[in-house]
């Protein structure tokens, strides 16, 4: 009984914290982007513009929640839910600090990869159900993008799994007591970072959205809180990938003096900031260029990384 309550409380706390960080990221991103573009960003609503998030949320709730008459209604309504669901499900296996995890599965990493693969369905279905040519093009590009990054995303992490000898998040973090995996697995880290940006569909790989070409890509027809779900889903995705990078390559909660959860949050926010810096700095490639790099450059590199790591792990054992 007591354990059940602890589980429920953990779930609720994680859900609360993750969703709040994701919502707060809207403000963080706008302020950071502004900082790097020599502007101020939102600084009027509340102290430092912090209440901008609340204002935006209230605005989203009051917008007309419209389903176009030509849309495939049920798929249209379902699509934004899928993105939230899959990304939030991925958080169940993350270990934030020793003992702070919803379910420390022994196939944790595999579960995350599976959920992230499912996440792309929301984009493709959203684009398809909208029955709008821009949305369809966005969905098409999302599919093409998924085909190009998903393969080397999984493979780039296999080096980490080989070195840790486990798919479980806590085991992977514990295996980094001597040395963070970013050192021996630097190539894997770079590949996963690139795949992670593509996975969250953020600049420079926001090809399915591509405001400057496709209106708003797959969510052109979405409004109100359905759009908000895509929006928050994207930010939760950023939090997820940042958390994954810090767990898999930067020793998760490991660190001196400060409590483990603080170390984890510091590392995670560092990568969230890096995501925003990427958005501030880099232009968007064409989706055929992304496929080109994905298959002709990233995949061979990931395979080579896997082979060499495997050979070394075998030799050392």
């Amino acid at each position: 009984m007591r354990e059940t309550i602890i589980h429920i409380v953990t779930v609720l706390v994680v859900l609360f914290v993750v969703l709040n960080i994701a919502a707060g990221l809207i403000w963080v991103e706008r302020r950071l982007l502004a900082l790097w573009q020599d502007r101020y960003g939102p600084n009027r609503v509340g102290p430092f513009g912090l209440l901008q998030v609340a204002a935006d949320t209230i605005k989203l709730f009051f917008k007309e929640d419209w389903v176009p008459p030509f849309a495939d209604k049920w798929v249209f309504i379902l699509a934004p839910g899928i993105v939230m669901l899959t990304v939030l499900m991925s958080f169940t296996v993350l270990t934030f600090a020793p003992g702070i995890a919803i379910a420390d599965l022994n196939i944790g990493l595999l579960f995350v990869l599976a959920m992230s693969s499912l996440g792309v369905y929301s984009v493709v279905l959203g684009g398809w159900a909208s029955d709008n040519k821009y949305a369809l093009l966005g969905g098409l590009r999302a599919a093409a993008q998924m085909l190009s990054y998903e393969v080397f995303m999984g493979l780039s992490l296999m080096g980490v799994v080989l070195m840790a000898g486990s798919f479980s998040m806590s085991a992977i973090v514990e295996a980094q007591r001597k040395m963070w995996f970013v050192v021996p697995q630097f190539l894997g880290f770079v590949l996963f970072l690139i795949a992670g940006v593509a996975e969250t569909r953020r600049l420079p790989f926001d090809i399915p959205e591509a405001e400057s070409e496709l209106v708003a890509g797959f969510h052109s027809e979405y409004s109100g809180m359905k759009f908000g779900m895509f929006f928050v889903g994207e930010y939760v995705g950023v939090v997820l990938i940042s958390a994954l990078i810090s767990i898999l390559f930067f020793g998760g909660w490991l660190g001196p003096v400060l409590p483990p959860i603080v170390w984890f949050l510091i590392k995670m926010f560092f990568f969230i900031g890096f995501f925003i810096l990427l958005r501030a700095a880099l232009p968007r490639p064409r989706f055929d260029q992304l496929m080109d790099w994905g298959w002709k450059l990233m995949l061979p590199l990931a395979l080579a990384n896997l082979l060499v790591t495997g050979a070394i792990v075998l030799a050392v054992r």
């Binding site: 900082l35 790097w36 573009q37 020599d38 502007r39 101020y40 810096l277 990427l278 501030a280 700095a281 880099l282």
Partner: peptide, 19 residues
Amino acid sequence: SVIRTLWHIFLHAFHPRVT
């Protein structure tokens, strides 16, 4: 060039704001 771009954009954090 990508890393160079990132670094240069990052340095803008220390520039005065034009707003």
